[in-house]
Design a protein around this nucleic acid. Sequence first.
DNA 1: CTCTTCAAGCTTGCATACAAGTTTCGTGAG
DNA 2: CTCACGAAACTTGTATGCAAGCTTGAAGAG
Lengths: 251, 251
Amino acid sequence: MNPSTANIEEAILSAILAGRIAPGTRLGEQKLADLFSVSRTRVREAMMRLETRGVVQVSARRGWYVVEPSAEEAREAFHTRRVIETGLLHTVRDISPKALGSLKEHVAAERAAIESGDVGSRACLLGDFHIHLADVLGNRLLTEIIRDLTARTTLISMLYQPTEKAEESSHDHEDIVAALEARDFERAASLMAEHIDNVEAGLDLDTKPDPLASLRELLSPSTFAGSPPSMPHAHTHGAPHAQPSSQRTKD
Amino acid sequence: MNPSTANIEEAILSAILAGRIAPGTRLGEQKLADLFSVSRTRVREAMMRLETRGVVQVSARRGWYVVEPSAEEAREAFHTRRVIETGLLHTVRDISPKALGSLKEHVAAERAAIESGDVGSRACLLGDFHIHLADVLGNRLLTEIIRDLTARTTLISMLYQPTEKAEESSHDHEDIVAALEARDFERAASLMAEHIDNVEAGLDLDTKPDPLASLRELLSPSTFAGSPPSMPHAHTHGAPHAQPSSQRTKD
DNA sequence: CTCTTCAAGCTTGCATACAAGTTTCGTGAG
DNA sequence: CTCACGAAACTTGTATGCAAGCTTGAAGAG
């Protein structure tokens, strides 16, 4: 089957949401075209759409790159999420048992992923919680907006998140769902504001993101047989974060 | 100078925001290409971007059309605006004198436009208030989101708004700014919720929008010399709104 | 050895050509 | 007069070709 523009768009976006594509990744038109077995035209359309959604950027005649949000843009993204998600919880008047049930299931899945140590699905689920929330409490339009914002946030976390806080996030989610179950939407909104603040506070927005992160990963100890080598001698100026990216997670 | 894709996109979006393009308007690629003196490729890019922003839609091999939101979509749009705009006012902690001043100026401009009877700039200003608010209280990202939502709302008003309520809207805006001046952000948020509810309540979402609106406008009394003719005999089934569209406004 | 210059290769930007489907309008049958 | 049919005109969908600019690496000067 021939993938449509929407398929390509969705494939890239969900890969970003799952944390499988790092910020700054180059997405060549021809390579993607080969990968999806379509012509560059289709790929270009998808990239253009993704650009208006704020997840990729084109650098003239150099290529398409997954966005690397600046500290300022990161703050804007979190501010926007705080506004929208607290607005949602503050506006909601009631919640159906079905919606509540699916949220509970989601949180349970989060905990399971954390306990089993499944880093990939864990990161995906933590971001997905917010999308799921918009889905059951809001509407399609709102869900789409939150989805794009979550993609942004995921990329931000990959760039600026020095420490792992999956458990705290999941716990926050749990509390929010508990407040929803008690129909205390005010409290849910406050908890959400706190939660988003926590996540933002867990970032290191003052240190410039490491431009060599991908290189460093390629040269990480596990790549070699036994002895962890010292970092390459030259060009190691300003390396703020030492963690391999697998320890990072979003949200 | 050769208009870029972004120029075309912006030209169309601002025309929609100003109420100069009606929902359902067909936007032919070739016509736009001629108009802007570029090839279809550039136009297509712009349309594609506008499609992801939710203001136009493509009907396969038939053409691009300015969206005609369904009643359901209209409700979603208003719900989303209520969530975001009350969320914004609820989140804000302070407002600078400069921001307050520019909002006051804006409301004054609204009143002036209403009193002078300048329908065009009036409609534009009423929608712009919300964008302006996001601009001074929020951030660029939020402003962009609100802008797209306002475009949607403008189109919705053109489809479903049977009566003129410019004065009420402007008065609501005034009250909101007054609450902001008093630093009573809770109150501002409530007023905003009320305001958006008012606007939505002023719509007639239950009656199907008139598919003959544009035709009817072409045949409106002012087009002819003196005598207002009766409507054309055939094909006048189900005409919910009788007002010429110039009486309608958004927001 | 270092720095500069330049050419080759690669990538996107843009236009155009053709394919595929839709609409419209004229023609002819009933 | 009405309806059905079909061809012509028109519109978007997609691929492709060439132009323009960026990157890189090699060669040469100092």
